[in-house]
Amino acid sequence: MNNARDAILAQLAQANPQLPQSTAQTPLPGLARLADTDATPTDRLTAALERIGATWELTDSPVSARLLLATALQADNVTRVLTWDEAHLPSPGLLDTLNVLGIETMIPDLRAAPLRLRPQDLDSRGDLLQAAAGVEVGVVAAEVGFADTGALAVRGGAGRPLLSAFLPRRVVVLLPVSQIFPSVSRWLARKNPLRNDAVLTFLSGPSQSLDLELIRAAGIHGPRLVHVVLIGGSA
């Protein structure tokens, strides 16, 4: 395959003989909507969430977010949630509160399966996934929300299994309002989105497919319902 690399690169170099090696980067234009000109970032985000089929509510502090979420889950007779380590949730004490209310919290971890797969490893993964897939609700946090599109940046990593966001049928995403950015490009301009994590995903509302006659079918590969809890005040 190294020969292939050299051959391809040589052919590419030959195809671009007179062109400069690099060109000065021109700034990219924004993708802001005309209607959003005078709205606050929170108003723009909530409008965008509604456009993409997500629901939302605004709380005034991490404590009220915790109480609101716990009582709502209890009222819905939810008995188990897939979630993250509490250190990564912007609502301290949430998992304890859920446990006190009799709601079991599961943090899925697939590391048990070794890299080299054997049939028994697949079985153990299968058992774990089956147990996780039976859980109706996921509770995770978004690092950033983008006001122009309603997309939420969810970062995977230690203590933050992405399965908790994408396996359940319903997912609740916690987002501090201080973490609302006007657009992806404005966020990228401020910080390196990569850090040291392997994966970063943008969640844009429920998982939706238009494959059948362009009619929306939700939840084929992810949550069918996405509810965003916006947290005002400081964590």
Binding site: I52, G150, G156, A198, V199, F202
Partner: peptide, 21 residues
Amino acid sequence: QDMPGAVTMLSGPARAGDPDG
């Protein structure tokens, strides 16, 4: 669509300690 339904950005295989990936 303002944004693709799902955007995933991968920079490598799962790191030590990652629960999935």
